[in-house]
Write a protein that binds this DNA or RNA. Structure first.
Lengths: 195, 195, 195, 195
DNA sequence: CATGAATGAGGTTTCATTCAT
DNA sequence: TATGAATGAAACCTCATTCAT
């Protein structure tokens, strides 16, 4: 009698372990054996569920995306929330978001040399950009304010700002506690006329 | 008498080759043999000038810093220049700056897991932050405007913005040509009241 | 199910190959590839079974010990045997014992600079010393002779004598055939009043 | 004007440094650079004075011999001395003799695989054996005792004994202080009827 | 004579992948 | 389906030797 397992579920649990290992050790120090140990399986099992190591890493990046999207979702499904409430969820201020953002950061560099990763990153960025756009539209609509002409530029600028804060929060953590990240983002939103 | 060489110059040329290779292949695909081939020396020579591979990579990161600082220097030594002229030099809009920024990006990720790299990155960030501060002070002084209270927050926000643009420019190059990067930075400066 | 192997057995066979190579080429000329070739495995397999080269060498030294102890055991499990029968088994007079003693000799030198090896050597020496002690006790008891006061000194002296003969037998083999080694040991035992 | 140096003297000082390094680090960890550093010259100079590394090591072994012979000479040139006085000089009981014996030990192992080293060691052993012989003859002559028949065997046995003590003194130093080495040798001489 | 920069062969070690079970 | 033993390519690094100066 074969062991009963859910194929997708197994893949997912391996990918989650991979994301964890990447955030802990960095992309280049991530070994299949470490992922296996954390997931409670052997390397043989991993390559049984994934074509190769690259496929595992790709899945790990998607896990990181999902963590972030889920965090944002938790906010937007509530009845009342501000633009800040949504965007601040992308900042590395909690253990979980730090992990997800660390993975993301690791892949930015890799996307320079690997077109496939670049595609994945760009695609995700577009989803993320769309969320920011939605939030801006919702804000101006809710406050009965006219849409700025350059809404796209504003939204791009906003995501760039957040990316910049993510880096500072990750690389220079002691100097960039949650409050500082929040304050700078808050100020920036104010400059754009968003409270 | 022994062969006469300029030790520092030799180290530098190897480090430059290393930076070139890193920007082309990424940090984890950077092999000593590739660096050697580009520098016209053997791996033996490299380890003759550097303790180990890590030391070579560290030197490469410093080369990337230097490239950027030099670019900025070229602007500030002129008689007339704007804040934008200075800051835009950090954006990956030319081959040279793209290369330097690619190296920088590669090390961001590594700084998460290696404290030494983090120190190096933080130190460099401080130099860079100082330049931005100077430019803001110079601007307000030149235009006889009062200094904003939150000058530091503004300047931090500005560097975060630039870091974000760097990532977009590197990861999503086709979508982020020079003009777009410049426009967004320009807009951002306007929002801050800086022309 | 995975390939079934006896882990300990595999380790042992590699260690035996290592001992063989050490005795042939010397410790410093012993390469993992040579050991692998002799054991019929690749270097990858070796480091799969051992942490590193050092662990392989340590295991090889233990193999050498075991060979010697086993040779002695073969004697002592018989009904009748003399002190000489036992001790002479430690001399490099057969192919097997020559090999074991060559390995032992190789590690003596190494134990000067590596405390761990020294520990191993000292520990083995104590086992060996104990065997000599037992033989002396058995002899005096069997012949109803009173124990000499300085039994320990005598036994230490005896092991030193044997170590000296081992060296001569290994280094100056043509001049030290089996008979000469045996004769000198025999004489020495006579001097101690042991027949 | 060329620097005035004594060629032989320079060779000697390098060989002395080599012996020092060998006794400190062991034969296989002895690098030409370390020898050079200790001798105050560069690797280039070393290979200028010696054909290759092997020649340096050979010279180092001879230095070790000389140290030992010199120590014995210091005794025999005095008016009164015992057999023990002479032989005990070969034991590793002083810093100098420990160093010389450590080098000797290192080469024993090497002599198994390298015939040239074996020749060197055998030749030296013969000189040493001759000294022991002389001492025995001198003793029996001085005490008007008849020469034992098996003088050669006795003398061989004696050198073997000393070799054995050298090993114990080097490998298990804490357990084999000077007094113990001396006591065992003394006892052994007594057994041979030599006071 | 003397130097030491440069070499490059060759060693150990790592680790993704394969495959017999 | 799942395993993990075995592989072997490829990386880094060491260091004796060479040779231009």
């Amino acid at each position: 009698m074969p062991k009963i397992v859910n194929h997708d579920q197994r893949r997912k649990s391996i990918a989650i372990a991979a994301a964890e290992v990447i955030s802990r050790n960095g992309l280049e120090s991530t070994k299949l054996t470490d992922i296996g140990r954390l997931a409670g399986v052997t390397t043989g099992t991993i390559t049984h569920y994934f074509d190769d190591k690259d496929a595992v890493l790709t899945a790990a990046l998607e896990v990181a995306y999902d963590i972030m999207l889920e965090r944002i979702n938790e906010v937007t499904k509530q009845s009342e929330y501000s633009v800040f409430d949504v965007l601040s969820k992308a900042l590395p201020t909690s253990k979980k978001s730090r992990q997800a953002m660390t993975v993301w950061l690791a892949f930015w560099s890799r996307s320079i040399t690997e077109p496939k990763v670049a595609q994945q990153q760009i695609a995700f960025h577009h989803s993320w950009q769309e969320i920011v756009n939605e939030q801006l539209l919702r804000y101006f609509s809710l406050h009965n304010e006219p849409l700025p002409e350059s809404l796209d530029d504003i939204s791009q600028s906003l995501t760039a700002q957040i990316n910049g804060l993510i880096i500072r929060g990750l690389v220079d953590t002691p100097d960039w506690p949650t409050e500082r990240q929040h304050r700078v983002l808050q100020n920036y939103l104010s400059t754009l006329g968003i409270r």
